[in-house]
Design a protein around this nucleic acid. Structure first.
Length: 657
DNA sequence: CTAGGGTTAG
């Protein structure tokens, strides 16, 4: 028996007929025909079937599958849907094209059951052949077979892979048309997932609202979806209505807040779930660790590390927790602790390596970053696009133009990662930071991918470092179009004009900002003093109880520094005013205030760790360099981008940032 | 056969 089914690509519009009684009887009669007593046959069959199934499970090559298939045929089981379903699933898993062998197997079956049809449909779906899978579905309906829940779930997944919401809606209509599926939870959950993944969250919500019954999975799917689009209010609302909350639902809230840059809220939920006695696993921990990374404070880092340890999730055997900890320690200012975690890990994957490389890059350890990159390649871990962003950033933050170029060129050839817009942004940054503004501009204008704000922003930043208002204006024109409301771009451009003394242009940009109603994000610095208390300072802010002492400290430092040749850098002040006023403004920059407080309050044997919300200014950078020399202290400053380690009059960034 | 996960640029 061989049926050549022709899967015509008809649209999904015919009215389904009821599952044919005739077909059901056919299948039954085939099974009850033999002369041996039914029970005995059943036993024999069961034994044979389970033997064949386990043989199939052990198949690792097409030859073995073909042998087993021959075995199936020899035993007259060519109509046994149960075994053939398994066979087709194995073929699919091994990524053989469906038309190559699976179709041959399938066409021998006269009356495939819904599971066999579905395995076949799913095979096409997983291989991205969605049209074909829909055709098979049509054919199945024409032959009078009713789908099962899993059939629709496979089809909805396929709609996601081809990003076709219209097809999804048609299949959605089918689920309603065919009795019994409109309220099927499994079908509806995958339906919600499809709408959510294709960006039609409201459609998913409507399906959810209309459901007569929901399970935890429906709720959690929507909570996660709201989190992913940054709508934590709706997520929280749903979470509040949940009749029963399990670990996964709680975790969805923790990671939702963490992913939306709301680390404090994430930790509030994490603590609440612990207080309510909900279990914690490594996924929950990862969300909490990521929240602690964003807080950037050693206090939280040690706290969460302790919790993870108590629960038995140690970097040595838990890769995800280890990778998250590497990232956290790097962001909390201790690349040493990050590396300790990395070393302790017995298993490392692309996340562990990428995080560690990014950690080194962040702290200006470019050589360590490159070395680790080559080690990773050597041990056979394939770098991905994020790895390359980290490696290229390491190069650009240390002026390693040649190494950067080399790696960029090798991305596609050697590692099969085609450079995306982010990688081009890294290259523009690399060239720009090295002072090759013309070449950077040329790359931005000729790159094969459409440049985004990151590319032009990198160029604008380089113009700031090298004082080039002309190229800055070009970059800014693009930026103002792509990101009209980003305050930082305007300030950067205005500062470039200010450094060049072009005060008319400064007021032009300032006027533009006023017209757009953009307000400056105030510069602030903070540091962690005794018992983890955080002290925060704004520029010119004299409200701290120890302001008097701080001012005294700063004046002392200024005099001692002047004696060894330090000169205040007036270019760092973007206002048109006299030098005396500029001097005062410089002295009251938030990072200097924080530094003064740190010197007063932090014991001399530990480093002073300062965080800052925006880029550190040139004058503060050289000031802190000098302070590290005359006081012998180690000072670590994290700006919005990276860490500066000041020690003995030098900075780890090599005055290059 | 269904729900939660870590790395990323100016």
């Amino acid at each position: 028996m061989y049926i050549s089914r022709n899967f015509s690509t008809t649209p999904l519009n015919f009215i389904p007929k009821q599952f044919s009684q005739y077909h059901q009887q056919q299948i039954q009669s085939q099974r009850t025909q033999p002369f041996v007593p039914f029970s005995q046959l059943q036993n024999q069959r069961n034994h044979l079937e389970s033997h064949l199934i386990s043989t199939l499970n052990g198949c690792t090559s097409l030859t073995q599958i073909k042998q087993t298939h021959a075995h199936i045929l020899r035993n007259g089981l060519e109509q046994c849907c149960y075994i053939l379903t398994k066979l087709i699933r194995i073929l699919t898993k091994m990524e053989f094209p469906m038309d190559y062998y699976a179709k041959l197997v399938f066409d021998q079956v006269q009356y495939p059951n819904p599971f066999l049809w579905t395995a076949f449909i799913r095979g096409y779906c997983l291989q991205g052949l969605v049209k074909e899978s829909v055709s098979v579905y049509n054919c199945m309906r024409k032959e009078g077979t009713l789908p099962v829940s899993f059939t629709f779930s496979a089809l909805f997944k396929a709609c996601c892979t081809v990003l076709d919401v219209n097809l999804g809606r048609q299949i959605h209509a089918q689920t309603i048309l065919i009795g019994g599926f409109g309220s099927d939870l499994y079908v509806n959950n995958s339906l919600i997932e499809m709408y959510v993944k294709l960006g039609f969250l409201e459609c998913g919500r409507k399906v959810f609202d209309d459901l007569p019954e929901r399970d935890l999975i429906s709720w959690t799917k929507l909570i996660v979806a709201y989190g992913k689009i940054g709508n934590m209010e709706s997520a929280g609302e749903l979470f509040g209505q949940l009749p029963l909350r399990d670990m996964v639902a709680w975790t969805a809230m923790v990671t939702g807040y963490a992913q939306n840059a709301k680390p404090r809220e994430a930790l509030v939920f994490f603590e609440r779930m612990q207080n309510e006695g909900v279990e914690t696993d490594e996924v929950t921990l990862v969300g909490a660790i990521s929240a602690c990374a964003q807080l950037g404070a050693a206090k939280y880092a040690n706290w969460i590390r302790g919790i993870a340890g108590n629960l038995g999730f140690n970097p040595s055997h838990c890769v995800v927790v280890g990778s998250a900890l590497i990232d956290m320690y790097s962001k909390c200012g201790s690349v040493e602790d990050a590396y300790k975690v990395f070393e302790a890990m017995e298993e490392r994957n692309v996340f562990s390596y990428s995080s560690m490389i990014a950690g080194f890059a962040m702290h200006g350890c470019a050589n360590a970053a490159l070395q680790l990159f080559y080690e990773m390649v050597k041990v056979g871990i394939k770098p991905n696009r994020v790895t390359f962003i980290a490696v290229l950033t390491a190069c650009s933050h240390s002026g390693m133009v040649e190494q950067g170029r080399q790696i960029f060129a090798s991305m596609e050839e050697e590692y099969g990662v085609s450079p995306g817009v982010d990688h081009y942004a890294c290259m523009v940054d690399l060239l720009g930071r090295a002072g090759w503004l013309g070449e950077a501009l040329n790359l931005a204008e000729t790159m094969p991918v459409e440049p985004d704000g990151g590319v032009w922003g990198a160029l604008l930043g380089a113009c700031r470092t090298y004082g080039n208002p002309d190229i800055a204006q070009i970059a800014a024109n693009h930026l103002f179009e792509l990101e009209p409301d980003t305050i930082g771009n305007h300030i950067l451009l205005s500062n470039i004009y200010a450094s060049a003394g072009q005060w008319n242009d400064v007021s032009r940009v300032r006027k533009l900002m006023r017209e757009k109603g953009l307000r400056k994000n105030p510069a602030r610095s903070w540091l962690e003093a005794e018992k983890g208390v955080i002290h925060e300072f704004f520029a010119g802010d004299m409200t701290h109880p120890r302001s008097g002492d701080m001012k005294q400290v700063l004046e002392d430092l200024l005099n001692r520094l002047k004696a060894i040749g330090y000169q205040p850098n007036m270019n760092s002040v973007a206002y048109d005013m006299n030098d005396e006023d500029k001097r005062w403004i410089l002295m009251a920059h938030s990072e200097k205030l924080a530094l003064a407080f740190g010197l007063l309050s932090i014991s001399t044997d530990s480093p002073i760790r300062i965080m800052k919300n925006i880029r550190i200014c040139e004058d503060c950078h050289s000031f802190i360099c000098g302070v590290s020399q005359i006081t012998g202290r180690v000072i670590i400053v994290r700006d919005n981008l990276r860490f500066h380690h000041f020690h003995g009059g030098n900075c780890s960034c090599g005055n290059f940032w």
